[in-house]
Amino acid sequence: MSHFNWTLDTGTNYHILRTGCYPYMKYHCSRREVQDLSLEDKFFRVLKVINLGLPMLFYGLAAIRLISHTEIVHVSETVKVPIYFLYAEDKGARF
């Protein structure tokens, strides 16, 4: 899925917009009310098929050089997942 709702146990909902950009996953997350995103999801999927995913491939390859910030997410005591960002997150941001 490219555009979907992600609701937490607390009831807070986020709209997730994501796409693959080899070798990474690019995403945007916005805190918003639950909406039917099926039309947008299909639209983004069609765009990916039409352009054969080439723009995101090139974006991902360029990101290898552009990434300047990494954070480690501890999934469990033994599993650590690195998350890569083009720049550091603003920890004081409202959302």
Results as ranks from 00 to 15, higher is better:
residue 2 S to E: 00
residue 5 N to I: 04
residue 7 T to P: 00
residue 7 T to R: 12
residue 8 L to P: 02
residue 8 L to E: 15
residue 8 L to Q: 14
residue 9 D to Q: 14
residue 9 D to G: 10
residue 10 T to P: 01
residue 11 G to N: 03
residue 12 T to A: 14
residue 12 T to F: 06
residue 13 N to D: 01
residue 14 Y to I: 02
residue 15 H to E: 00
residue 15 H to R: 09
residue 16 I to N: 06
residue 16 I to Y: 03
residue 18 R to W: 02
residue 18 R to L: 08
residue 19 T to L: 03
residue 20 G to N: 11
residue 21 C to D: 02
residue 21 C to T: 00
residue 22 Y to G: 00
residue 23 P to W: 04
residue 24 Y to S: 04
residue 25 M to P: 04
residue 25 M to G: 06
residue 25 M to H: 02
residue 26 K to V: 10
residue 26 K to G: 09
residue 26 K to C: 09
residue 26 K to N: 07
residue 28 H to D: 07
residue 29 C to A: 11
residue 31 R to L: 08
residue 31 R to W: 08
residue 31 R to K: 15
residue 31 R to S: 01
residue 32 R to L: 12
residue 33 E to N: 12
residue 34 V to W: 07
residue 34 V to F: 07
residue 35 Q to H: 08
residue 35 Q to M: 06
residue 36 D to L: 05
residue 36 D to A: 06
residue 37 L to T: 05
residue 38 S to G: 05
residue 38 S to V: 05
residue 40 E to H: 00
residue 40 E to M: 05
residue 40 E to N: 08
residue 41 D to A: 07
residue 42 K to L: 09
residue 43 F to P: 07
residue 46 V to A: 10
residue 47 L to W: 00
residue 47 L to A: 04
residue 47 L to R: 07
residue 47 L to S: 03
residue 50 I to H: 04
residue 52 L to H: 06
residue 53 G to M: 03
residue 55 P to V: 00
residue 55 P to L: 04
residue 56 M to Y: 13
residue 57 L to R: 05
residue 57 L to D: 01
residue 57 L to F: 15
residue 58 F to T: 10
residue 60 G to Y: 00
residue 60 G to A: 02
residue 63 A to S: 14
residue 64 I to M: 14
residue 65 R to F: 15
residue 65 R to A: 12
residue 66 L to S: 14
residue 67 I to C: 08
residue 67 I to F: 12
residue 68 S to P: 03
residue 68 S to C: 09
residue 68 S to D: 13
residue 68 S to N: 14
residue 69 H to W: 10
residue 69 H to K: 08
residue 70 T to G: 04
residue 70 T to M: 12
residue 70 T to H: 03
residue 71 E to C: 01
residue 71 E to N: 08
residue 71 E to P: 02
residue 72 I to V: 15
residue 72 I to R: 03
residue 72 I to T: 15
residue 73 V to I: 14
residue 74 H to R: 13
residue 74 H to N: 12
residue 74 H to T: 04
residue 74 H to F: 06
residue 76 S to W: 04
residue 76 S to V: 05
residue 78 T to C: 06
residue 79 V to S: 02
residue 79 V to N: 06
residue 81 V to R: 09
residue 81 V to W: 04
residue 81 V to I: 15
residue 81 V to M: 11
residue 82 P to W: 01
residue 83 I to V: 15
residue 83 I to W: 03
residue 84 Y to M: 07
residue 84 Y to H: 15
residue 85 F to V: 02
residue 86 L to W: 04
residue 87 Y to Q: 15
residue 87 Y to N: 11
residue 88 A to C: 05
residue 89 E to D: 09
residue 89 E to A: 08
residue 89 E to V: 11
residue 89 E to H: 09
residue 90 D to C: 05
residue 90 D to S: 07
residue 91 K to S: 09
residue 92 G to I: 00
residue 93 A to Q: 12
residue 93 A to R: 13
residue 94 R to K: 14
residue 94 R to F: 09
residue 95 F to E: 13
residue 95 F to D: 15
residue 95 F to C: 08
